[in-house]
C-alpha cells in the first residue's frame, strides 16, 4: 500500500500545492482583466463592460512614456555596471583562493539581504552629506549596487562548472590571458552573464524602494506607479500600465530561464 503512494502524490498534497500556485497566479491574471474594464472611478467587479479605449489613451500619455524611457535608461546602465563588477568579483572568488573570500560574498549579498529602505536612506543621507544633487546618476548608483549580486550569483555558479583544465589547456597551447578570456571563458560563461544581466535589468526596472530615496524629482515607471497607487488620477491608465509591466517583466525571466536551464552540460565538465 505505502509504496504505491510514492508513485503519485497524496490527494491532499496535490490540492495544497495547486492551491498555493493558484494563490500566486490569480491576482496577476486579474490585472489582465482590469486593463479592459470600462469602469473609471472604482475597482468594481465584475467589470460593467470591456473596452480597448484605455490602451489608446495610455499610448498618448507623455508622462508614462517619459517614466518608461527613464526606467529603461537607468536599468540598462545599471545592468552594464553590474555586469562588469559582478563578473570581476565572481572571477576573483571562484578562480583564486585568498583570505576573506567569504566576507566578499557577504558584502555582495548585503545590499539585498538588508531591507531596501536601509540602502535607500543610507545613500540618501550620504548624497546629502556629500552635497551631491539628485539626478539620473544617483538613481543608477543605487540600482547598480544591488544589481551586482544577481550577476555575481549567476556568474559564480557557472564559473564553478567551467573546468580549470580548459583554461590551462588554452594557455599551454600558447594563448595569452586575453585570448583565453575571449575564446574560452567568455563562450562558457556567456549565457550565464546574459541571464544575470536580464535578471539585473528586471530587478532595476522594477525597483521602487531605493529609488524613492535617490530619485529626486524625476520618476521612473515604478515611482509613477507608486504615485498612482497613493493618489489615483486616472485608474484605467494605471490598469493598462500594470498589465504592460507584467508582460515586460515576464520576458527577461523566461529568457533567463531558457539560457540557464541547460547549464549542467558545460564543455570541459564531462570527465
Amino acid at each position: 500500500m505505502r509504496s504505491d503512494k510514492s508513485a503519485s502524490a497524496p490527494f491532499g498534497l496535490k490540492i495544497a500545492a495547486a492551491g498555493g500556485l493558484l494563490f500566486l497566479h490569480l491576482p496577476l491574471l486579474l490585472i489582465f482583466l482590469y486593463a479592459f474594464t470600462t469602469e473609471e472611478k472604482s475597482y468594481q467587479f465584475p467589470p460593467p463592460g470591456l473596452t480597448l479605449k484605455w490602451f489608446a489613451v495610455t499610448w498618448e500619455r507623455a508622462d508614462v512614456w517619459q517614466a518608461l524611457w527613464l526606467s529603461v535608461r537607468v536599468a540598462s546602465i545599471s545592468t552594464m555596471i553590474a555586469l562588469v563588477l559582478g563578473t570581476l568579483c565572481a572571477a576573483a572568488v571562484s578562480q583564486t583562493r585568498f583570505f576573506g573570500r567569504e566576507t566578499i560574498s557577504l558584502l555582495v549579498i548585503l545590499p539585498i539581504a538588508l531591507p531596501g529602505i536601509i540602502t535607500g536612506i543610507a545613500l540618501r543621507s550620504a548624497f546629502s552629506l556629500a552635497d551631491i544633487p539628485f539626478s539620473f546618476w544617483t538613481i543608477v548608483l543605487g540600482h547598480a549596487t544591488f544589481c551586482i549580486v544577481v550577476v555575481y550569483n549567476n556568474a559564480v555558479a557557472r564559473f564553478r562548472r567551467v573546468s580549470g583544465s580548459l583554461m590551462e589547456a588554452s594557455m599551454d597551447l600558447g594563448a595569452n590571458g586575453f585570448q583565453t578570456f575571449r575564446y574560452i571563458i567568455l563562450p562558457n560563461i556567456g549565457t550565464a552573464l546574459l541571464a544575470g544581466g536580464m535578471l539585473a535589468f528586471a530587478l532595476s526596472f522594477d525597483e521602487v524602494i531605493v529609488t524613492t530615496f535617490t530619485g529626486g524629482q524625476q520618476s521612473t515607471l515604478p515611482i509613477w506607479m507608486l504615485q498612482e497607487l497613493i493618489r489615483p488620477r486616472q485608474r484605467p491608465v494605471t490598469n493598462v500600465v500594470a498589465m504592460v509591466v507584467v508582460i515586460v517583466t515576464f520576458l527577461p525571466i523566461l529568457g533567463a530561464y531558457y539560457l540557464t536551464r541547460d547549464g549542467d552540460q558545460i564543455a570541459g565538465s564531462g570527465k
Binding site: L28, I31, Y34, D206, P222, L229, V246, I253
Partner: peptide, 21 residues
C-alpha cells in the same frame, strides 16, 4: 516557472492587484 514568474513580477503591480481584490 510557476514560482519564478510571480516572484520576479513587479512588486507594485502585485500590490496593485491586491488593491483591486
Amino acid at each position: 516557472l510557476g514560482v519564478m514568474l510571480p516572484l520576479w513580477s513587479s512588486y507594485l503591480v502585485k500590490i496593485y492587484a491586491w488593491k483591486l481584490i
